[in-house]
Amino acid sequence: MSRTPAPRTQVIPARPTPSPPLKIGVIVGSVREGRFADTVARWFVAEMGRRDDMETHVIDLSEPALVDELKLTFERSAAPGDAPTLAERVGGLDGFVVVTPEYNHGYPAALKLAIDYVYQEWRAKPVGFVSYGGMAGGQRAVEQLRQVFAELHAVTLRDTVSFHMAWEQFDDEGRPHDTDGTAKAAAVLLDQLAWWGLTLREGRAVRPYDG
């Protein structure tokens, strides 16, 4: 006597819940008058704007509120008025991209001050770099910054975007002459930032980092 096999129940996999966009801080590390950082930062922020998995939050160290808060001293002070402190701004973000020049084979003093002014808020978060300068393209500044962020338990990304002889790489409208090459370099950096940003955000939610 044969039996009709019971019909198989089709299991439909659950659709993954979309993750909210990563909150990424773009830190403009130069405060010099007439700085080239504005050109580089504007271009990179525009590249980030092409993505829907990230929110851009610019932290410009030349902002009057930040200049007043930092006061070029290591002593902590309250942010002026109702402005959030630098630590509060960093703490609310999922990752960072530092836009930095190279000054005398190093990175700007104002950037070091801002990094040191914050501590725990950097931990277990990814940091990418967009650098510019002369022949070295700011890479010596980036290598020094990697050591600093390692001490703060941040994760620095392998690939960077760098502009060698930067003032020759952009037209009068602030657009790179090599639009395709720079866009691809930015995409590689942002893809890595998205992976690390999401992975570390989920990890901190499950198990707070106490390293």
Score class of each variant (00 low, 15 high):
residue 1 M to G: 15
residue 2 S to M: 14
residue 4 T to P: 00
residue 6 A to K: 15
residue 8 R to K: 14
residue 8 R to N: 09
residue 9 T to K: 12
residue 12 I to H: 09
residue 13 P to N: 01
residue 15 R to S: 09
residue 17 T to N: 04
residue 20 P to I: 00
residue 21 P to C: 10
residue 22 L to D: 07
residue 24 I to S: 03
residue 24 I to L: 06
residue 25 G to K: 03
residue 27 I to G: 04
residue 28 V to N: 10
residue 30 S to R: 08
residue 35 R to I: 10
residue 35 R to N: 10
residue 38 D to P: 03
residue 41 A to G: 09
residue 43 W to Y: 15
residue 50 R to H: 15
residue 50 R to K: 15
residue 51 R to P: 03
residue 55 E to V: 09
residue 56 T to Q: 09
residue 56 T to C: 15
residue 57 H to G: 09
residue 57 H to L: 13
residue 63 E to S: 13
residue 67 V to P: 02
residue 68 D to C: 07
residue 72 L to P: 03
residue 72 L to I: 12
residue 74 F to E: 15
residue 76 R to W: 09
residue 81 G to C: 04
residue 83 A to Y: 13
residue 86 L to V: 05
residue 98 V to L: 08
residue 99 V to G: 03
residue 101 P to I: 02
residue 105 H to I: 01
residue 105 H to V: 02
residue 107 Y to A: 04
residue 110 A to K: 01
residue 111 L to S: 04
residue 111 L to P: 03
residue 114 A to P: 07
residue 114 A to Q: 04
residue 115 I to R: 00
residue 117 Y to L: 08
residue 126 P to K: 04
residue 126 P to R: 04
residue 132 Y to P: 00
residue 132 Y to H: 05
residue 133 G to Q: 02
residue 136 A to T: 14
residue 142 V to Y: 04
residue 144 Q to C: 09
residue 145 L to K: 01
residue 148 V to Y: 05
residue 149 F to K: 07
residue 149 F to P: 05
residue 152 L to D: 01
residue 154 A to I: 04
residue 155 V to D: 01
residue 156 T to H: 08
residue 156 T to S: 07
residue 157 L to S: 02
residue 158 R to M: 03
residue 162 S to N: 14
residue 164 H to T: 14
residue 164 H to V: 13
residue 166 A to T: 07
residue 167 W to P: 00
residue 168 E to Y: 06
residue 171 D to Q: 11
residue 174 G to A: 06
residue 174 G to E: 05
residue 174 G to Q: 09
residue 176 P to L: 06
residue 177 H to N: 07
residue 178 D to K: 11
residue 180 D to H: 05
residue 180 D to Y: 02
residue 182 T to I: 01
residue 191 D to G: 01
residue 196 W to R: 07
residue 198 L to G: 14
residue 198 L to H: 15
residue 198 L to M: 11
residue 203 G to K: 11
residue 206 V to S: 12
residue 207 R to Q: 14
residue 209 Y to G: 06
residue 210 D to K: 13
residue 210 D to E: 15
